[in-house]
Amino acid sequence: MEEIYLDNAATTKPYPEVITKMNHTLTKAYGNPSSLHGKGLEAEKLIKTARKEIANKLKIKTDEIYFTSGGTEANNLAIKGTVNALHRYGNRIITSSIEHPSVLNVFKRLEEQGYDVKYLDVDQNGVVDLEQLEEYLTAETILVSIMGVNNELGSIQPLAKIGKLVASFDNLYFHVDGVQAFTKLDLFPAKLGVDLYSISAHKVHGPKGVGALYIKDGTRVDNLISGSKQESGVRPGTENVPGIVGFGEAVKEIEQEDFTTKMYRLKKLLVTRILNEIEDSFLNGPTIEQGVPHIANISFAGIKGEILVHSLERDNIYLSTGAACSSRLDTPSYVLEGIGVEGDLIEGAIRFSLSSQTTKQEINHTVNKLKKHVTVLKQIIQR
């Protein structure tokens, strides 16, 4: 096979339609959307169309979507913007111990600045402790930030239950990092009691460098960047028109597909074959059905995941040892540590992440190659 790409939780390959639409925008509709002439109006219209596509997918109003440079900026805007806007009402903010670094590191910085930060524990499936959350919620709490789907494990958080707990407090916002959940699950922020919801284009077959933040009407968020009135002043700066257009086109194409069932079927094939055919392999986190359809984290005892990743790369099979943002760091996965995985099972963990473009043939070919590499590596280790 020419290439098998199973690192879609890190980034996805843009749809051909996305590339075509972006090329048109770059070469034909290149005006500044703030300009009053025809070229500017054309660009502005394209942004409105993309905003509508994304808003429809989330079942929210178009003016509740604010474009950013990606999921990281959307998370930072949601968290810092909320804290800046609500700090007079309280000092407590809550998140989980297994959040993405673009959330976790912001909370750590705020903790250094004197905020009362509470980190929720998770169970062996990577799901937050709701009783602990209820215990931590007080009148002084101004923000709860919990990811919809964990990027390493595929754990799905009980957002509706969290939303109900948060709703009983005044001056308290609920933010969700929805980057790994968007288009994979039917999670609609307005129905879940979510005030802020972050998404990213390059996780859904769109371009890198563009994301968005849902901000529920009436939610107070201080802008982090000062400038003009783009994005209603919440995120000033000339819009990334080609990126936004590509984002909208990607969501439009995804809406034409029903791939959740397909991904669950392929994930089941992948996990079942590995666990049945490769000795000392273990699924980390939720079961196949409990987790999101496109992510599976599996450990191979006695083998370093990094070596296994590079071995598979020689066969043009691409996957990762964990989150791309931290996979180059020589430190154990805090996510796997958080769910109780120990020792060489952390070092031997591999993340498989599928997409709508993944095929059954690719899954079977990957497992066959994986079996061979694991066998060879074990023989080398035993010498």
Rank of each mutant, 00 (worst) to 15 (best):
L159M: 12
V103G: 01
N105S: 11
G81R: 05
L86H: 02
T68K: 07
L58Y: 05
T141Y: 11
S69N: 14
L172T: 05
I79A: 05
L159K: 04
K164H: 09
V128Q: 11
V166E: 02
N171Q: 06
A50M: 14
I156L: 11
K57D: 10
D116I: 06
V127W: 04
S155V: 00
E131P: 13
E140A: 01
Q113P: 08
S155N: 04
S97R: 07
L165W: 02
I79Y: 06
K164N: 08
T68D: 14
I156F: 08
L153R: 06
T49V: 03
Y173A: 04
A43V: 11
S97G: 10
L159Q: 07
N91A: 01
Y66E: 11
N56G: 12
G70H: 07
D121I: 01
N84T: 08
E44W: 12
V117P: 05
N150R: 09
L130I: 10
N125R: 04
N150K: 03
I94P: 01
T82L: 09
E140L: 03
L110M: 12
L133N: 04
N75E: 13
T141L: 09
I47N: 00
L133I: 06
Y66M: 15
M147A: 13
F107I: 07
D129M: 13
T82P: 07
L104V: 10
K80N: 08
N91M: 04
V83M: 00
K61Y: 15
I93F: 09
V144F: 01
E99K: 05
L143Q: 03
D116Y: 03
K59Y: 12
L110R: 08
K59G: 11
A50C: 14
K164D: 09
I142A: 00
N150A: 10
E140M: 04
D63E: 14
N56V: 13
T49M: 03
S97Q: 14
S97D: 05
K59P: 12
D63T: 12
A160G: 13
N171W: 08
S145L: 07
A43Q: 11
G114K: 09
Q113R: 01
D116P: 04
D123M: 11
E131C: 15
E131F: 15
K48V: 14
S102R: 00
P101W: 10
K164W: 00
K45C: 13
E42S: 15
Q124L: 05
L104E: 03
K45M: 14
A85K: 08
V117S: 01
G126F: 07
V149K: 04
